[in-house]
């Protein structure tokens, strides 16, 4: 059974100053199997982040269906979506989104605490796995950008999620750190047999994936926008 299934997913927003909703996401069908790693390419404004938010349940869809690990995200209430996100989805952001007042270890533990529960030994082991065993008590601002992204990766996979969403995870990194971060994300997903849906517009990143899906083809709303 696919870890992620999308059917006729639609989302529209009323733009600032506008009155009529403008479609941002309009996807007919898309699926991702366990352990599968897919890169999603697309230009700015093509609805990449909105799609990831819909899949993660951060945004509610206007219509259509998103199934994650067998649960229908679109039929759940907000609390149910929160629970499903905490237990089954790991989210890596372009800007890392680490909590600045919390240490590396606390960032990872917090990620776990909303799901199955905080496991200090597992959190320490994960930070060791990403090369930060000696930085457990460091605050994010005390780390380099590459190290911050590694904490974000550890936090995203701490609950052993079935699906990992990565939104431009290398966008803020230099080429060397970008390569390392990408290898880390993919390696950990492979170890956990987690499906990975990674959004990027970096050709080097896209080239490293066997399956690359163009959002401008997948998303009918994006096609309409770019059409003359």
């Amino acid at each position: 059974m696919p870890v992620l299934e999308i059917e006729e997913l639609k989302k529209a927003f009323v733009p600032p100053g506008g009155t009529a909703p403008v479609p941002v996401v309009d996807i007919g069908s898309f699926s991702l199997e366990a352990g599968e790693q897919v890169a999603l390419s697309g230009s700015s404004g093509s609805g990449k982040t909105t799609l990831l938010h819909l899949v993660a349940g951060i945004l509610a869809a206007d219509s259509g269906r998103v199934r994650v690990a067998g649960s229908d995200m679109t039929s759940l209430g907000e609390a149910g979506r929160d629970r499903l996100r905490a237990e089954s989805i790991g989210y890596i952001f372009q800007t890392f989104n680490l909590l600045q007042g919390y240490s590396c270890l606390e960032n990872v533990l917090l990620g776990m605490s909303f799901g199955p529960g905080a496991d200090v030994a597992h959190a320490r082991s994960l930070l060791g796995r990403v090369g930060l065993a000696d930085r457990l008590d460091y605050l994010p601002r005390q780390l380099s950008t590459g190290q911050q992204q590694r904490v974000a990766v550890a936090r995203a996979v701490a609950n052993r999620p079935r699906l990992v969403l990565a939104d431009e995870p290398t966008g803020n990194l230099d080429p060397s750190n970008a390569r390392q971060a990408l290898e880390l994300i993919r390696g950990i997903c492979t170890e956990n047999n987690a499906a990975l849906l990674l959004v990027s517009h970096d050709p080097a990143v896209l080239a490293s994936f066997q399956r690359v899906v163009s959002l401008s083809e997948l998303n009918r709303a994006a096609r309409k926008e770019v059409a003359p």
């Binding site: 993660a56 996100r85 905490a86 952001f93 989104n97 680490l98 007042g101 909303f114 799901g115």
Partner: peptide, 14 residues
Amino acid sequence: RDIAILRALGARRS
């Protein structure tokens, strides 16, 4: 921002 991050990690509104 912190609240949004917590929510994105799965924290409930409550």
